[in-house]
Amino acid sequence: MFVQIAKRLIMMLPLLLGITLISFVVIHLAPGEPTDLQTQLNPEVSSELRERLRAQYDLDKPLLVQYGKWLGRLVQLDFGESFVQDRRPVAEKIAERLPVTIMINLLSIGLILLIAVPLGVLSAVRRNSLFDRFTTVFVFIGFATPSFWLALLLMDFFGVRLGLFPIAGLKSLGHEYLSFGRQVGDVAHHLVLPVFVSAFGGLAGFSRYMRGNMLEVVRQDYILTARAKGLSERVVIYRHALHNALLPVITLLGLSVPGLIGGSVIFETIFAIPGMGKMFYDGVMMRDYPLIMGVLVIGAVLTLVGNLIADVAYAMADPRIRRR
């Protein structure tokens, strides 16, 4: 098994190289350059100045040379410096935004699992009941609701009218003067609406998936056997069936590993949360190549690693896979 993992890891390298090369070329193909925002349509900037700025960022060099330089730095785990005016190291900018994004995504995935798994199982067990139909409608409403719209409605109702929850951001004004316990409480208070909104839309996928798995499993022969043995319905469903129905969720979780670092622009913009989504979006708009590449590389690595982990975990959990 370790040999297999090692093989998979080695195979990742050329794959990663290919991903970076394609991403690098594609971004540079998009019209516009990082210096544009500063120099285009600005009457105070002459063409010499424009060229000087381009040269400072190596933008006057051929694309392959730029890629080579970038790759050279990446090998030393250096993502380079952002091309926008703050010129900060990309790694620092990402590190600043990563914890918040991961925290919200973890909370929201946790909440989704917490609600969606029982919801899916119950819908499957009571297939076509009133409960099943009601949850179906409910989760699809969640799926179809635009998050920005829901967010604004909730902010207006809970934030402005009732004054129960803060509207935007993650910390209150006097946050730094609070005791540690209160600080945690403050952040939690701020997170209620965002986590709810982001989880609401994800319920449909997971609960439907769970319901489908469960329906698939209860049709299997071993469930029939279990029932034939005279086990109680409880034990049949929650021990024998649920166990197997949960297995594919591992794959799904493995696939959501890269999603942990990705945020949603709309969602982060609405709640004024300094997360990865907004940073990446701004980076693309300003053609901040090092930042874009940094985020893409991390995303690519996490995708590959996430797949690997999912496969390994699946193999550990399910003896049927291990054999093959």
């Binding site: 604004l152 902010m155 207006d156 934030g159 402005v160 509207i167 935007a168 951001g169 982060e268 913009t269 609405i270 709640f271 004024a272 907004k278």
Partner: peptide, 9 residues
């Protein structure tokens, strides 16, 4: 606060 509607709220 990047969104004008949120800012207004």
């Amino acid at each position: 606060i990047p969104d004008p509607s949120t800012m207004f709220l």
